[in-house]
Design a protein around this nucleic acid. Structure first.
Lengths: 237, 237
DNA sequence: GTCTATAAGATGATAGAC
DNA sequence: GTCTATCATCTTATAGAC
């Protein structure tokens, strides 16, 4: 539906050194389509049409279709990881016990430091980021190559989360923290993908695009869940 | 990989009135493949090969590819809904205030009545059910036609959950209950789809196939989350 | 860098023999 | 009911002109 950015037809002299812009245009188009229909649900022709470029250009820039997908996935993963790592480091630093007057870290605080950057980026980052989160959510639930892809890109920051939580609750077992992380990531990814299901389910009471509503609830929801699981495990031991 | 059930080749006289069995065989094959690779990631030829039947038979029995998918999705949805509805009705009845000696309903109890049937079916139902849950999880995170499909099949039982929770916590706002349900379903679906990611993430500490571990944590995790969100909303009002 | 043209093969679906 | 054979179309990807 959406055509090319500037030029309508590919006629005549390409308006100079568009190479890099075109590459981004193709990535944007691919990102949106992959997010909506999945890897196999999109053809390179569709991507070319959406980007307003020729099919051959896609192969010229990215090679095979799967490489295009990886390029889409990789483009924002780095930014995401840096934002989350910085957020968690800042939280830990702000609650350094050596710092006078700094309060102690809390489970909810750590979880907020882990999730909040994603909500903020989704809210302020524009439609490309919305598509990207939907894409990640889909990959996360794809058994075939999803688990491997997620691990490759996002495992380090998750380990950072778990280790930080282990500092806050030293008595907690790692297996409880990992299970709780799985619960957390399921909730978080579904919320970030904004599927619209809660809109119809709640008959207009809630809107999946309302990430402020997510922010107001998800942190305390997850924190209470973590605490409950940890407490239950301790009492059973 | 897996060949046909009984006959090795399609040669000779088909061993009588196999029609219904074959239909199920095709559905089983399609279910497993769709669960792993999604709708567009599977070809009718692959389904035919996996089922050990001819390609034409698939169209003879089910028509178009999308109709085959719907048949796969529908086959177990009904069973699932009945199991969950029965479980929740039984829980409500067991805690009827009119019944002498019956304790009051709890948030955790209601949530357990909602989720436990799925865990039990996945544990006792065989590999077909495992595939089915992975398939539902994938559809749940598919923006294109996923939301609509999920709504069509599973909205009623979710409304039943929300209404029952509203009885247990009358002061809770519906929007809080719907948001918490979204968090719950994200956790639940990811756990049921057994993607294997937690296995590598936890370096062998946890296994996604260990639904007993999920059972031991998910109910209390979600219940604590619901309570926290409800409490926060009340105090803010 | 960008387009035209096309190769080489896979895909959903059907008609008709048995 | 089941299989053979095939159509018409679409797919990814490349070679080569400009």
């Amino acid at each position: 539906m959406t055509a090319a950015k500037t030029r309508v037809s590919g006629r005549g002299r390409p308006s100079k050194a568009k190479g890099l812009d075109l590459k981004e245009t193709i990535l944007d188009a691919a990102e949106g389509l992959f997010a909506r229909h999945g890897f196999h649900g999109v053809t390179t022709r569709q991507v070319a049409a959406e980007a307003g470029v020729d099919t051959a250009l896609i192969h010229y820039y990215f090679g095979a279709k799967r490489e295009l997908f990886d390029a889409v996935f990789l483009r924002r993963a780095e930014i995401l990881n840096q934002a989350r790592e910085a957020s968690m480091n800042a939280y830990v630093k702000a609650h350094d016990p050596e710092t006078p007057g700094a309060g102690a870290m809390t489970v909810e605080g750590v979880i907020e430091a882990f999730i909040a950057p994603l909500l903020r980026i989704s809210q302020d980052g524009g439609p490309g980021w919305k598509s990207y989160f939907a894409l990640v959510a889909q990959v996360n639930n794809t058994p075939a190559w999803g688990g491997e892809t997620m691990a490759r890109f996002f495992d380090p920051v998750v380990h950072q989360l778990v280790e930080t939580l282990k500092i806050v609750r030293p008595q907690a077992e790692y297996r409880d923290l990992y299970w709780c992380y799985q619960f957390l990531t399921g909730s978080m990814m579904l919320s970030l993908s904004e599927t619209g299901r809660i809109d119809s389910l709640s008959e207009g009471e809630c809107h999946s695009s309302d990430l402020e509503a997510v922010r107001a609830r998800l942190f305390s929801y997850c924190a209470a869940g973590f605490e409950a699981v940890i407490a239950k495990a301790s009492s059973a031991a």
